[in-house]
């Protein structure tokens, strides 16, 4: 598993579910079904629109697709405490979203 300087998967095409577990490990997260739901969501989003949302739009998009309970910063921060959008992209083997520090 090759990572870039910011800890993102160097070759996104090499991503698979087992790698996702290992990527999550690097940021101290053990993936549960709740995590997987968000990971699958962002992979599907990226496949469809070929573009990553910003943090605010990310929450809004989840709201529309998975409901208001999950489309909330609080819920997402509980799953990905180090910044939901950045961390979910990292686990999902996607590029780092622009604008994220």
């Amino acid at each position: 598993m090759q990572l870039d300087r910011q800890g993102f998967l160097a070759d996104p095409s090499s991503w698979n579910e087992e790698l996702a577990e290992r990527l999550a490990d690097t940021i101290g997260i053990r993936l549960t079904e709740e995590h997987w739901e968000i990971v699958r969501f962002i992979r599907d989003y990226y496949r469809r629109y070929e573009y990553l949302p910003n943090a605010r739009l990310f929450v809004k998009a989840i709201q529309k697709s998975l409901g208001a309970d999950k489309g909330s910063s609080r819920y997402l921060h509980k799953l990905f405490p180090g910044g939901p959008l950045k961390q979910v992209c990292l686990v999902a083997g996607l590029p780092k979203p622009p604008g994220c520090l």
């Binding site: 910011q6 780092k96 622009p98 604008g99 994220c100 520090l101």
Partner: peptide, 16 residues
């Protein structure tokens, strides 16, 4: 704008 600045190398991606 942070992402416009990042695209042009005026802001780093690692921290503010």
């Amino acid at each position: 704008c942070v992402s416009a600045a990042q695209r042009r190398g005026l802001a780093s991606c690692e921290g503010a």
